[in-house]
Nucleic acid binder design. Structure first.
Lengths: 106, 106
DNA sequence: TCCCTGTATGACAATACGCGCATTATGCCT
DNA sequence: AGGCATAATGCGCGTATTGTCATACAGGGA
């Protein structure tokens, strides 16, 4: 059994990925570095919201930024999220497959 | 870019793991099948709460149950959560390592 | 059949979180 | 220094979620 502290850390991490808005930001940044204006354009969220979400992702080490004058250029940091999503995708596929077979048997 | 629907599915899945209570249940069940009384004993949560959380995990295919008279025996289903946690753990370690080096440099 | 044990569900309080608006802080340019 | 663009923060509202208590439901044994 993992310690309660570790469970807490895990859950906090997964919580970051439990919001479509944040996943969306991560996916956009995965394509390449972007400034905040582009993210606003791409997602339709308010500047304040995006700023906060990026802050959270940054604290978790999932994104990183570099200042360029007053603008800030953000980019995804690491491939962890890709790997996690790949695993989940595999699972989702399996489940759909299973449901499909279930239907065909019936 | 994944479709919004897919992002939604991912986030819903990760949301399941974003709660220490649910992770805790998963971890206990990973050790082997347990009945609800044992889970109450082990976690200290109320029966109703455990019932609900197990329901969510079951719908996602993360746990599975078999009736044994009036009792219900639950067990973890699949290794996905282990794999996800292993990935996250690696990341956590890396980050702590980095912080450590940062401190030593300073 | 009635009771007794164990599970699921309805109602509710407390809390956390998403999201935007308005404001403030920060850095560049003239 | 003053003004302008951009990013961060305070605040508030609405909604979703956690967790409990009380209650309804199901299955086995006398």
């Amino acid at each position: 059994m993992p310690s309660p502290q570790l469970l807490e850390e895990y859950s906090q991490f997964f919580r970051l990925l439990s919001e479509p808005a944040r996943l969306q930001l991560l996916c956009h940044l995965k394509q390449g570095p972007l400034d905040v204006a582009s993210l606003i354009e791409a997602t339709g969220f308010s500047q304040s919201h995006i700023s906060r979400q990026l802050g959270q992702l940054q604290r978790a080490g999932l994104v990183r930024c570099e200042r360029e004058g007053t603008r800030t250029i953000w980019q995804a940091d690491g491939v962890l999220v890709d790997e996690l999503c790949a695993l989940v995708q595999t699972r989702l596929k399996q489940r759909l497959q299973a449901q499909l077979e279930q239907l065909q048997v019936t």
